[in-house]
Structure formats: C-alpha cells, structure tokens
C-alpha cells in the first residue's frame, strides 16, 4: 500500500500540489485524472523520487520513501510522460543500464527481455538508437525497460500515448494481469474511456488539489446514467458547477 500524506510541491511561486492525502491499495489499478497542470505528473514524479516534495511524506508499505529510497525504487518500474531520455543509447544499451540498476541476473533478464520484445514486436530493433525510433517505438522501449525487472509496482505516466492500438491493448492486458496478481499499477491518463475501462480506483486532481479519491464504481454510482466523461467535466471543467453540462444536455435535447 502506498500512502501520500500532506504532499505539497511549489515551483517558485506556483503551487503545483496543495497538500494531497491519498491511499493507493495493493492489487489495484489506480488512475490519476486531471487537466493539464492539475498535478498528476508532479505526484508521480514525487513517487519515483524525481522531484523532492516541498512538504509531506510518502510511504510504501509503511516505510517512508526518503528512508529507503534505493530498495523502494527497486520495487518500482517507471515510464515517464515523455520517452525522450538516453536518446544516444541503443535500446539494448538502455536495457543494460536498467538491468545493472535493478541488478537483474543475466538469465532472468534474457528471458524477460525476449518475452517483452516478442509482446511489443520489438525483436530485431535492439541495436537501434532510441533517437532513431518513432515516438511510439521509444515508448515501447521505455515500457520494456520499466517491466524488465518485473517490479511489484508499475508507475506509468500516460503510458499509452503514442502506442499503436495493438501495443496499447497488450499493455492494458498486462496492467490488468499485474493487478490480478496482487500487485499495483498506477497510471495517469487523459483518456477517460481508458480510465473507466481499466481503473479500480481513481484520484481526480484539480489545480493541485485532490477532489476525488475512491473507486470508479462509487463515482459512477453517484450520478446515475452519466458517463465518467460527464462526471469528470462536472467536477473539473470550466463550469464545474454544472452549467456547461446542462447547456450540452439542452443542446442534445434540441
């Protein structure tokens, strides 16, 4: 279980997170929703130690992140929101670096890599540099790197962006399977249908504040016959008081 307590992050005078508290249970697919700049990536980057929170604490199974960063990182596989890193390395060299970081035994790595290469149809591309790949291919290479050590917790920042339909489908299936095995998948997305289809639990952020944290079922049940899209827009849209939705409904009726 991951617990986030009073998380705040300031960038200069801008408050990206204004004291977020949330709990992410094991064995679930947990989604972050929110507009651009709502704070999704800031929370995710805090979870994987890319940024230091201004205030607040993060616990992984009761252990505070700052007290045991290395071991906690070893249990996490992370996919960033943009796959533009280590571009001069070949895919194989990037995976070598990841394998060294996670201290994956050679034979285990070999087997896992072959499985993932086959799944994402990347076999034969190992010697190509990441900069030579298309956005989607780079994303696949980074996803393979993240899953290479078979980590318990997957933290994926908009992981489906740029993936072709087949790869997106395969990754979604992998995410489901991972959660079914009692492990955790955390991801952010702008695609509400994907969130509705995949997530067990959701956190909705608006301007650095958490405005919903709970199950998707409960959220959908709270507003009968309304799609997640409409509920989400009501909560976060330009007219969060519902004026926009009413206007849309009126237009639809006409």
């Amino acid at each position: 279980m991951i617990e986030v307590v009073g998380l705040k992050k300031n960038y200069g005078e801008t408050q990206a997170l204004k004291g977020v508290d949330l709990t992410i249970p094991n064995g679930k697919i947990f989604g972050f929703l929110g507009h651009n700049g709502a704070g999704k990536s800031t929370i995710i980057k805090s979870l994987v130690s890319i940024i230091e929170p201004t205030e607040g604490k993060i616990y992984f199974d009761g252990e505070e992140l700052i007290n045991n960063r290395l071991d906690i990182k070893k249990s996490i596989g992370y996919v960033p929101d943009t796959p533009d890193m280590f571009l001069q390395l070949t895919a194989e060299e990037y995976w070598d670096l990841v394998a060294a970081a996670y201290e994956i035994p050679k034979d285990v790595r070999q087997q896992r890599q072959e499985e993932l290469l086959a799944l994402f149809e990347m076999t034969g591309k190992e010697s190509d540099t990441l900069e030579g790949f298309s956005h989607g291919m780079r994303q696949k290479a980074i996803v393979i790197g993240a899953l290479l050590s078979d980590p318990d917790i997957w933290i994926l920042d908009e992981p489906l962006q740029g993936l072709d339909p087949q790869a997106a489908f395969d990754l979604k299936e992998l995410m489901k399977k991972h959660a079914e095995n009692g492990k955790t998948v955390i991801f952010s997305t702008h695609i509400l249908s994907t969130a509705e289809q995949l997530c067990d639990e959701l956190a909705i952020l608006k301007k650095g504040e958490l405005i919903y944290n709970g199950s998707v079922k409960d959220l959908l049940a709270s507003a009968e016959n309304e799609s997640l899209e409409k509920i989400y827009l009501k909560m976060t849209g330009k007219h969060s008081n519902g004026e926009l939705i009413e206007e849309l409904e009126e237009m639809e009726d006409e």
Binding site: V48, I50, D71, K73, K74, Y78, P80, F86, Y102
Partner: peptide, 12 residues
C-alpha cells in the same frame, strides 16, 4: 542534462 533521467532508477 541527463541527471534527472537517472533519478527513477535504483542507482545511488
């Protein structure tokens, strides 16, 4: 500008 790329990996 590559230091941030190492950060999520379990390197000391």
């Amino acid at each position: 500008k590559d230091l941030a790329s190492y950060q999520p990996l379990p390197f000391n």
